[in-house]
Simulated scan of single mutants.
Amino acid sequence: MSNDRSRRSAVHVLHLVDRTTGQPLRLNGRRLTVFARNPVIAARELMHGRDPGRWAVHMAPADQPPA
């Protein structure tokens, strides 16, 4: 597998964050966490039906510590 392909297929971690509070979306007290190989598509699906003025998607490679 080439380096370019392995970079594209790396797993990413995504979180929905409330722009007004800076806090992640929580369900039953737990932060919503999505793992995806294509973070652009996953972010689009997370934002479907949500107000982009209120919500933001934060994403990072899964092998990096959270910010």
Rank of each mutant, 00 (worst) to 15 (best):
A10K: 15
A10V: 08
V11K: 15
V11T: 15
V13N: 02
V13A: 04
L14C: 09
H15D: 08
H15P: 02
L16H: 03
V17C: 09
D18Y: 04
D18E: 05
R19N: 13
R19P: 03
R19M: 07
R19V: 09
T20Y: 09
T20D: 14
T21H: 09
T21L: 09
G22V: 06
P24V: 11
P24Y: 03
L25T: 02
L25C: 04
R26V: 09
G29N: 08
R30M: 14
R31M: 14
R31N: 13
L32S: 10
T33L: 13
V34E: 04
V34S: 05
F35Q: 13
A36I: 01
A36M: 05
R37H: 14
R37N: 12
N38E: 10
P39Q: 06
V40Y: 02
V40Q: 10
V40N: 06
A42D: 01
A42S: 03
A42F: 03
A43D: 00
A43L: 02
R44T: 13
R44F: 00
R44E: 12
E45M: 15
E45F: 09
L46T: 03
M47Y: 00
H48K: 15
G49V: 01
G49H: 07
G49K: 06
R50L: 15
D51L: 08
P52Y: 10
P52G: 03
P52D: 08
G53H: 10
R54P: 02
R54K: 14
R54S: 10
W55V: 11
V57Q: 07
V57F: 07
H58S: 12
H58Q: 15
M59H: 06
M59I: 01
M59D: 03
A60S: 08
P61L: 15
P61D: 09
A62I: 00
A62C: 03
A62D: 03
